[in-house]
Write a protein that binds this DNA or RNA. Structure first.
Lengths: 227, 227, 227, 227
DNA sequence: TATGAATGAGGTTTCATTCAT
DNA sequence: CATGAATGAAACCTCATTCAT
C-alpha cells in the first residue's frame, strides 16, 4: 500500500500498478552497468551519511557523478533506488544464512548457531549506519520478504534437528529467534560498539539461542554449570 | 509602498542546538492545555495513519482542529511534536516495567518474566502502527533514553537474583534481553497478529528468557521435559 | 504506507556561514544564463517598485517568468539575489569612478571634481528607487566593499595632487568626501528632483568639494569672489 | 504611500485613513505611561539588536515585559511603534539644532558650525545601531519631516548671516550641508568608530562646512595656511 | 544516450493582529 | 485594563521528476 507521491512538473500521477519500483531498464552495455553501480554506491553513501530524508535524488546523482537524468533512466523513482539497495543487502544476508544452514545435518547445534551469529555480526559490522536506514525503510515498505525467507530457512533447519530440540511451536520459535538475533546484532552494531568488541557479548548471545532451543542445556562454554 | 510584513531577513534560521526540540512553552491556561493535548492526539493519529514522512505539521494541525500557528506556539518544529509523543510513550512503557519489577525479591523468576512479557505485550497492543513509527524515529535521534533506563532496571533486577542466575556478563545480558523481548513484542504486534493470539507464542518467548537466565532450566510449562 | 516526499528531517537548516550568499551555480547553458538575467532584472523591478520587504522570492520569480524552483537553483536565498544586484550596481558605479579618475594627472582639480560629480549624478539618475533600496540593504550587511574601493581611489587621487591640496587627514577627507557627495547625489535623485534640475545645485556641490580641498579657493564659477 | 499589510485572523483590512499610525490612546495613568515607556525602550533595544525585520511585535512586548495585548492597546501596529521611536529621536536631534542655532547673531560662523557638528556627533554616538535602523526606516516611509525642519532652520540661519557668506543658492546649500553633515556623522558613528575618535576628523568636517560657506576661508585650525 | 535546466506542489515556519477571559 | 491563546496568510525553500537539447 505504499503511497508514492511522485511529483512531476505537469500532468498526471503515475499509476500505482505493481512493478513501478522495478529498475527501468536492464543495463546492457558496460558503461550503463558502471553508471548503475555508481548510483547505488552513491546512494549507499548518501543514505548512510544523512538518512533517508536528507538523501535526495539530486544529491545521489551528484555524488555518483552522473546527471539526474541518467539516474531516472535506470530507476523510475527515488524509492526504486532504495529498493535496489535493500535487495542487494538482503541477498547478501540471505547468502550468509544459507551458507551456514546448508550443512545442518553434519554439525552439532552449538556450532551451527555460533557460525550463524558470527556471520551475522560480521555482516552487521559493514556500514551499520546504512543498514539502519535500510532496515527502517525496508520495514516501512514491505513486510520484509527476506525475513520470511530467513524464517523459513531457520524453521526448516529446526525441523531437521527436531529430535534434539525442545521447541513446541516451531513457527513462533523461528520468528522469535530471527527477530531477536537480527535486532541484537543490529542494535549492537549501531548503538553499542563497545559490546560488539567484547567476546562475552557473543557468548551471551549464543547462550540465548542455544539454551532456548536445546533439549538439555550443556552450554559448552560454561562447563561449571554442567556438573 | 513600504511593506511591513517582513520576514527573516538575515541569519535567523533556527540552529540545531540542544533544546531546539523542547516544547516551546508550557500551556498555562486550560484552553491551551486542551490545544496541546489535541495536537498530540492528532499527531498520533496522523503518524499512525501515514507514517512519519506523510505527517506534515499542517496535516497535524488540521487534524487537531487548531491553526498551524497554534501548533508552532507550543512546538518549535515537527520533530519536537514527535519527540513529545515519543517521550509520553516511553514514560508509559517505563511505568509498566517499573510496576512489574518493583517486587522482584518476593517472586520467583519465571513469574516475574511472565508478568513482564505480558505487560510489554499489552503495552504493544495499543496502537501498534503508531509505536512502529515512534520506534523508528526515536531510534533515529537518540540512543533512546528509555532503553537505557529499562536496561539498568533489568540489570539491577538481575543482580538482586544473581545467585539463581547463570549469566556471566550482566551488561551484555541486559542489552540482549531488553532488545530481544522488546523487538519481538513489537514486531509481533505490528506484523504478526496471528502469533500474538497464540498462547504458545508467549510460552516460547518466556522460554527464551527463562532458559537463558536460569541456572537450571525447569521450564515450568513443559513438565514432560523435566523428568 | 511509506511516503516518499520527505523533507528536511533533522538538522539541515542552512547555516549562515560565509559563502551562503554566493550564487549557487554558474549557468553554463545559454538558456540558464537567460534565466539568471531574467531573475536579476525582475528582482530590480520588484525591489524598485515595492521595497525590500515586499519583494518576495515568489514575486520575483513570477515577475521573471520563471518558476520559484529555478530561482533557487541559482540563488540560495532572497538575500543572495539582492546581493548579486548590489554587486552589479557597485561594479557599474566603480566603473564610472575609475574612468573619471584615470587621468587625474593631466587635469586640474575643478575639472576632475566636476566630471566626477556629473558622472555620479548621471549614475544616480538611473532607477533611483532601486538604488535607494540597494543602498539601504548593502549598508545593512557589509561596510560596502565598494565604498572602501571608492575611498581608496579618491585617497590615491588626492595623494597625487597633494601639493595643490590643503587637507591634513587624507583618510578622514576621503571618507567625508565620498560620503557627502554620494549621499547628496543619492538623496537629490530620490527626494529632490527639483534640485537635480537646477544648474546651481551642481555648482554648489562642486563648490563644497573644491573649496574644501583646494589650498586657495579660486572657485572658477564665482569670479566675483576672487578679487 | 506606505502600504501597511495588517494581517488579522479574520475579517477586513483596516482602512488606510490618515492617523492610523497615531498612538491609540494617550496614557493617562501612571502605570500606563510606564507601560508605553517600557514598550518604546524594548523596541529600541530589539531594533538595535536585530534590525527592523527581526523585530517582531511579540518580541518587543516580551522584552518590555508586557503582554502583546497591552502593546496593541497603545499602538495600533508595529509601524506605529517604530514611528513613535523615530519621532522621539527626531525631536532630540531637532532640539540640538535649535539650541545651537538660536543665538546665531551673537557668534561667528566657525564657532556656530563647530558647536553644531559637535552636538550632532554627540547625538550620533548614542546607540548608533538603533539610529541606523530608524534612519533606514524613516527614510522608507516619510520624506523625513525632520530633515525639512532642519533644512529650513539652517537656511534661515544662513540668511541671517548672508553678508558673510558666499553661497549662491541657499536652498541647495542647505540641502547639501544638512545631508552631508548628517550622513557623515551617521556613517562615522556606525561604520568608522576609529575616525570618530580622531580629532582631525572633526577638524576636517568643520573645514568642509566652513570653507564652503565662508566668503574667505580663514580655517582657524590651519594657521600655517594663512601665512 | 547523457545532460542539466526547469518545474511547481507542498512542506516548514513566522508574525502582525484579534479577542475571550 | 491586562493577558496570552489563537489565527492564518504568506514567506521561504526543497526536491522528485520531466524533457529539450
Amino acid at each position: 500500500m505504499a503511497h508514492i507521491r511522485t511529483r512531476r512538473p505537469t500532468g498526471s500521477r503515475r499509476s500505482r500498478a505493481a512493478g513501478v519500483l522495478a529498475p527501468r531498464k536492464e543495463p546492457s552495455q558496460d558503461r550503463a552497468r558502471h553508471t548503475v553501480e555508481a548510483i547505488l554506491q552513491a546512494a549507499a553513501a548518501v543514505l548512510a551519511q544523512g538518512g533517508y530524508d536528507k538523501a535526495s535524488t539530486n544529491r545521489i546523482a551528484e555524488a555518483a557523478g552522473v546527471s539526474i537524468g541518467s539516474l531516472y533512466q535506470y530507476f523510475p523513482s527515488k524509492e526504486a533506488v532504495v529498493k535496489a539497495l535493500v535487495e542487494r543487502h538482503e541477498q547478501r544476508m540471505l547468502g550468509v544464512m544459507r551458507a551456514h544452514l546448508s550443512d545442518v545435518a553434519s554439525q552439532d547445534i552449538p556450532t551451527i548457531v555460533r557460525a550463524l551469529i558470527d556471520g551475522l555480526l560480521d555482516a552487521h559490522r559493514v556500514d551499520p549506519r546504512l543498514q539502519k536506514v535500510l532496515l527502517e525503510h525496508s520495514g516501512g515498505h514491505t513486510s520484509s520478504s527476506i525475513d520470511d525467507a530467513v524464517e523459513s530457512l531457520v524453521r526448516t533447519a529446526m525441523e531437521t534437528k527436531k529430535a534434539e530440540l525442545d521447541v513446541a511451536d516451531l513457527d513462533a520459535a523461528a520468528f522469535i529467534l530471527v527477530t531477536s538475533v537480527r535486532t541484537v546484532c543490529h542494535r549492537a552494531a549501531v548503538e553499542r560498539p563497545d559490546l560488539l568488541a567484547r567476546s562475552t557479548f557473543v557468548d551471551e548471545l549464543n547462550a540465548l539461542v542455544v539454551r532456548y532451543v536445546l533439549r538439555t542445556t550443556p552450554s559448552p562454554k560454561r562447563p561449571s554449570r554442567r556438573r
